[in-house]
């Protein structure tokens, strides 16, 4: 057929090759793709949690305002704020303020570290004081602890990896090696970690409703 060959030689759209259709570098696209995949992993875990919770008649709701909810709210605050500092870091980097960017990234790392410490304290409280472990707890619904530790544990792993990742970025930026886009890509990851918590926090802590 004629139309297949009579196409113009110059690509008609961004999809015609020789250009990035999203007008972004491949690294950023790669990070977005990773985020999609990782989001699905977390979704699968959250759906598994929902599935098991729905099938369990007496799901325990032991999170009281103090200390658990208070702690978790504080953690949410820390994480959200670290997202703000991160976006400020990206912003500074985009405007060519390298030193300021390093400062913001360090602040973000501090936020991440604070989150991990708070979370670890809460885990300790649950394990030592309340006797919740992945396989048993005082309310005799072992899945409660299992889902809690699996979900928050995987998230905490992501936070720890994120802090290390940001450390590498901070050093690179400080030495003048990395470009603004590298900071932005690391920012994408960090915000994603924040985003996941926005779903884990209400589903695991706040849904203390009897089903």
């Amino acid at each position: 057929m004629a139309e297949a060959r009579s196409e113009t030689l110059v690509p008609a759209s961004a999809w015609g090759g020789g250009a990035s259709p999203f007008a972004m570098n491949s690294k950023k696209l790669g990070m977005w793709l990773f985020i999609i995949s990782d989001a699905l992993t977390f979704s699968a875990l959250l759906v598994a949690y929902t599935y098991l919770r729905l099938a369990t008649p007496n799901w325990p709701t032991p999170f009281h305002f103090s200390p658990s909810i208070l702690f978790a709210s504080l953690m949410t605050f820390v994480l959200l704020s670290s997202s703000l500092t991160m976006v400020m870091g990206v912003h500074a980097m985009n405007h060519g303020h390298r030193r300021r960017a390093v400062g913001w990234i360090l602040a973000t790392m501090a936020g991440g570290a604070a989150f991990v410490i708070l979370h670890a304290t809460e885990w300790r409280h649950l394990i030592v004081d309340e006797g919740v472990t992945p396989f048993s707890n005082p309310w005799n619904e072992p899945l409660f602890g299992a889902t809690f530790f699996a979900l928050t544990g995987l998230h905490m792993t992501h936070v720890i990896v994120g802090v290390l990742y940001l450390g590498v970025i901070a050093i690179g930026v400080g030495r003048g090696k990395f470009k603004p886009e590298d900071v932005e890509v690391s920012g994408l990851y960090w915000h994603f970690v924040d985003l996941v918590w926005m779903f884990i926090f209400p589903l695991v802590y706040l849904m203390s409703v009897h089903i």
């Binding site: 690509p11 090759g17 990035s20 491949s26």
Partner: peptide
């Protein structure tokens, strides 16, 4: 997505 040569439409 990104590395197609010039003229290589989908």
């Amino acid at each position: 997505i990104d590395l197609r040569a010039k003229g290589m439409t989908l």
